[in-house]
């Protein structure tokens, strides 16, 4: 479990103060994958540097399994850091070391016996599927393989938390999915807490259990994936499940609604149900239906005839747990 409370970071730039983090609090329970999304400049990088104490936060605290990382001396900090495994955007492997020597690095630091290191490294390389590249150098590996080595290295100290900073931003889509699949597998097997900082909504949709939206140094929205996707008034819903392309506005007269729904409702014929119950025509203008995790999510834009009792329809939809937003036709 990782607990961040009221983290603030203020940089001094010339004569003015720049607030990079403005009171970030979050908690990720053990074994959960949490995504932190935000545009560049939102404070993601600063957050990562403060979480690992590469930069000292101005105030606030970071704790892993109740153990404080902030306000401790440098020896305690070094030990505490070993509770967090970190995966970087560009892997940051050491070119002068072979794959297995890279994975062995964190173990060497604390003087682990050679035999123990060899066993642990072999085990980790098998876990990430790179056993046959053990003696090779990072320059001989592909981007995805390098990231796998990075993950194996991050896990060498048996950390409680895996902190991934844009882990797939430098990878192609197929490799991205492979790496995300690996992270999910590792979480399942090791019951490790995972924190992923990313700007890619795809990553959130693929593996996150919960998500936070970081904006101007503040978390402006957070919650379980299901909750934020179906929260029609939230900012994440429309970015996580956008309507395809330029969603068409309604042509001519009529009432337009945006519907967001999940799970049970998604498997039911919502639209034809409405058509029958209210004896009206429904026009689907745009829609996207996605299967995320083990849940089905749908985002539809529908249009009703102008003479329909729209209030009754909205009431009916909301009573079945569907989030409705009214979009006035132009």
């Amino acid at each position: 479990m990782i607990t961040v409370s009221d983290l603030r970071k203020v940089y001094r730039q010339g004569s003015n103060d720049v607030v990079a983090l403005d009171g970030v609090s979050l908690e990720v329970p053990t074994g959960k994958i949490h995504g932190i999304v935000g545009h560049s400049g939102a404070g993601k990088s600063t957050l990562v540097r403060c979480l690992t104490l590469l930069d000292q936060p101005t105030s606030g605290s970071v704790a892993v399994n109740g153990k404080e990382l902030t306000n401790v001396d440098s020896d305690a900090l070094r030990n505490a850091r070993r509770r967090i495994g970190m995966v970087f955007q560009h892997a940051n492997l050491f070119d002068s070391r072979t794959t297995e020597q890279n994975v062995a690095y964190p173990l060497e630091l604390v003087g682990t016996p050679k035999k123990e290191i060899a066993e642990k490294v072999a085990q980790l390389l098998e876990l990430v599927g790179l056993t046959k590249f053990a003696k090779g150098y990072p320059s001989q590996l592909s981007g995805g393989q390098r990231q796998r080595v990075g993950i194996a290295r991050a896990l060498a100290t048996d950390p409680d938390v895996l902190l991934c900073d844009e882990p797939t931003s430098a990878l192609d889509p197929a490799t991205t999915d492979e790496i995300l699949e690996l992270v999910r597998k590792l979480r399942d097997r090791l019951n490790i807490t995972v924190l992923i900082i990313t700007h890619e909504m795809h990553v959130v949709k693929q593996i996150c259990d919960s998500v936070s939206l970081l904006e101007a140094g503040k978390i402006v929205e957070h919650g379980d994936l299901e909750a934020v996707i179906t929260n029609a008034s939230g900012r994440l819903a429309s970015t996580l499940l956008p309507l395809p392309g330029e969603a068409p506005q309604a042509e001519g007269a009529g009432r337009v609604l945006d519907l967001l729904y999940t799970g049970a409702q998604a498997t039911e014929p919502v639209i034809s149900g409405i058509a029958r119950k209210f004896n009206t025509d429904v026009n689907v203008l745009a829609g996207s239906v996605e299967h995320l995790g083990d849940q089905q999510f749908a985002h539809l834009r529908v249009q009703f005839a102008p003479d329909v009792d729209i209030a009754a329809i909205i009431e009916h939809l909301e009573s079945t747990g569907i989030a409705v937003t009214v979009k006035e036709a132009k």
Binding site: L54, R78, N92, P106, L109
Partner: peptide, 20 residues
Amino acid sequence: GKIDAALVMGSTKMQVIRKV
């Protein structure tokens, strides 16, 4: 990035210099 990686893994400054 490599220096950061070494620090995050719990290296002392001396270890960063010598080993990385």
